[in-house]
């Protein structure tokens, strides 16, 4: 199922764009409940899948069945939402994540650069961090702890945010850079999140892209978002917008081809619609690469 076009073959002969020895899996989509049976039984064309770690961090039953069946058919990567790298961490969560990674053996594992709540209440949301040296050092320690537990390459994703802290001392891209270099980990670059946050906080998205270590990017996320009254909301419930496609092309031109994932979590459409979106990403990626050749 691993799709390799002529252009990608050509790119594979170039020096690795990432400092980490990770494969370029191509263009993938998220593995979501409405598509489990279809994906397993019909094996539709798709380069790879990303699965939400927490959905499968259970002891048995249907979720584990559909994960085992997917792993037999496609490359897959684990992506979490509840590690809370800015928080205290939950030993039970980490133990289950490590067990899942040992079973699935993905090329990398990721979660978000955020916190999800306190010890008295979990918001089940990706809450932005204050960009301070104290928080940076805490997050670096947490990433090292999680990386060691899972025993594979770890990557952190930039979140969409709607709130900024007065305490922050550096811009988000500088904080991200300090964290990934301090923890020596990868980046899951969510291009849609860069764009959404750039609108919400009034910065230039290219300044963000130009000031992070792109050789640490192991994966890209693309998604749709919603335009609200006075801000953009990362809703993952529609197609990728033109501005985000343009930003994606700019990223590819700066760093070459990298595993790319379309996220579509709300109002999940037919799988064929996801394939269309993945093909759009492939077309834009290939055009960006052609400009390099």
């Amino acid at each position: 199922m691993f799709r390799q076009g002529w252009l990608q073959d050509l790119m594979m002969k170039r020096p690795a764009v990432s400092r980490f020895a990770v494969p370029d899996l191509g263009i993938g989509v998220g593995y979501r409940v409405p598509h489990y049976r279809q994906v397993v039984e019909e094996q539709p064309e798709m380069d790879w899948f990303e699965v939400l770690s927490e959905n499968f961090m259970v002891d048995g039953g249907s979720p584990r069945h559909w994960l085992r069946e997917l792993a037999k058919r496609y490359p897959l990567v684990l992506h979490g939402v509840a590690t809370s790298l800015g928080g205290e961490g939950d030993p039970g969560h980490l133990r289950r994540l490590a067990a899942l990674v040992a079973e699935v053996r993905p090329p990398w594992v990721s979660d978000h650069l955020c916190f999800t709540g306190s010890h008295t209440a979990n918001a089940h949301d990706l809450l932005p961090l204050p960009y301070t040296p104290e928080v940076r050092d805490h997050v670096i320690g947490r990433i090292r702890e999680v990386s060691e537990a899972v025993g594979t390459l770890y990557a952190v994703e930039n979140v969409s945010s709607y709130l900024s802290w007065k305490a922050s001392e550096v811009p988000e891209w500088e904080f991200l850079t300090q964290v990934v270099e301090g923890a020596d980990c990868g980046i899951l670059l969510d291009v849609n999140n860069v764009f959404v946050s750039s609108v919400n906080h009034g910065f230039d998205p290219m300044e963000y892209i130009n000031n992070i270590p792109l050789d640490r990017v192991v994966q890209i996320h693309l998604a749709g978002h919603s335009i609200k009254d006075g801000y953009r909301l990362d809703t993952h419930d529609g197609p990728v917008c033109d501005e985000v496609w343009e930003l994606y092309a700019a990223v590819i031109q700066r760093m070459g081809s990298v595993s790319t994932l379309i996220e579509w979590d709300g109002d999940v459409p037919e799988f064929s619609r996801l394939q269309q979106e993945a093909n759009q990403a492939r077309t834009i990626r290939d055009a960006a690469l052609l400009a390099l050749v």
Partner: peptide
């Protein structure tokens, strides 16, 4: 740009939608 109250309000609204 949203006011600080509105910024927190975005997260509060998401909580009110997501958790129930």
């Amino acid at each position: 740009m949203l006011s600080p109250t509105d910024q927190i309000g975005v997260y509060a609204e998401q909580y009110r939608l997501r958790l129930p």
